[in-house]
Simulated assay, not measured.
Amino acid sequence: MSAGRLLSVLLSLQSRGRMSARRIAEEQGVSVRTAYRDLARLQAAGVPVYAEPGRGGGYQLLDGYRTRLTGMSEGEARALFLAGLPGPAADLGLAEEVAAARLKLLASLPSGPREEAARTAAAFHLDAPGWYREPERTPYLPLFVEAVLTQHAVDVLYRRWRAPREVRRRLRSYGLVLKSGVWYLVAAAESRISTYRVSQVLDATVTDERFDRPRDFDLGSYWTSYLDDFHKRRYTGTATVRLSPRGLRRLPDNVPPEVVRAVDSTAAPVGDSGWVEAVIPTESTEHACGELLRLGVDVEVVAPDELRRAMADTVAALARAYGVE
């Protein structure tokens, strides 16, 4: 039996409310049978855990029960301060709240963890947006924070990449995700869960409609599945290319990681010049042409013929533009 696991189960019930034994088992990495034993041990220790039978039932704590924990370690205090980095909190409209919470947490810690937490807060700064890109404007982000927490539907005017470009939706917001400095909203429109780029919301109004977020919805799991599906849909073809030694060095700065990994796994030498030949994934002929042209003379497209012609036509057009015959 793990005392740490029992504590983790207790804190999960305290913070999340009703949970099934299967959900507890999955989170703790144990069997369902072990989860039942852990719940029984908590009950035997006097923790008011009770079972709610029937569809949608599970285990939960008696209303109002809270455990008070002391003895926070230096590592735990350090992790809490890293979890409250101010950049994303400011985006969400929570900068003052996070700052106040950090001060209260710091004041409540004993001297050792307090000093360690203060050193951590002073040594890390998060700047999420990538280089060469301005942070996106997200004026409606605080509105979506409120909608997620209060479970109110939001009417939006949204700009998307395909026609019709501007559409109206009523969204039931399940969560927000920060990815490489870009905020995304995960929400249900009618019966379908989709992902929306917050910066593309042109107008938003909170409605009086309330909704219940599905109990079995997990934002982290959804996002992982969404990314997997995105990458599968993104790359629909392949191309065979040859790269010079300098092209190989420049590759990570000019193409996505998926292309770099493909070159690393398929590269084969071509002669004694240091050039290699590899097979890379491609989105479309136009997109691949634009990416590979960044490498200039350090890349040659071998196949398919359509991409090879597109590269040649673009280079020829550039030569004409600069007066080179």
Rank of each mutant, 00 (worst) to 15 (best):
Y158S: 02
L94C: 02
A101H: 04
R114H: 15
R159F: 08
H125D: 15
A107C: 05
A123Q: 01
K104V: 01
R159A: 13
A118M: 08
L149F: 00
A147V: 08
A128P: 15
R102K: 02
L141D: 01
L157N: 07
G112L: 13
Y132L: 13
E97D: 15
V98T: 04
A117Y: 00
A107D: 15
L105K: 07
L126E: 09
E134C: 01
R133F: 07
T150N: 05
Y132F: 14
L103K: 11
H125A: 15
P110K: 07
P129T: 10
T150C: 15
A121T: 06
V156P: 01
L103Y: 04
P113I: 05
G130K: 15
V148R: 02
V98A: 09
A153W: 00
Y132M: 14
R119T: 03
V156S: 01
A95H: 02
T138K: 05
P110W: 07
G112K: 10
V145T: 10
E96W: 02
R102M: 03
V98L: 13
A117I: 01
P129E: 12
D127V: 12
T150I: 14
P113L: 08
P113S: 13
L141R: 12
P110I: 04
L106K: 04
G130T: 13
A118I: 11
A123F: 08
A121G: 05
E97S: 05
W131K: 05
E97L: 12
R114F: 07
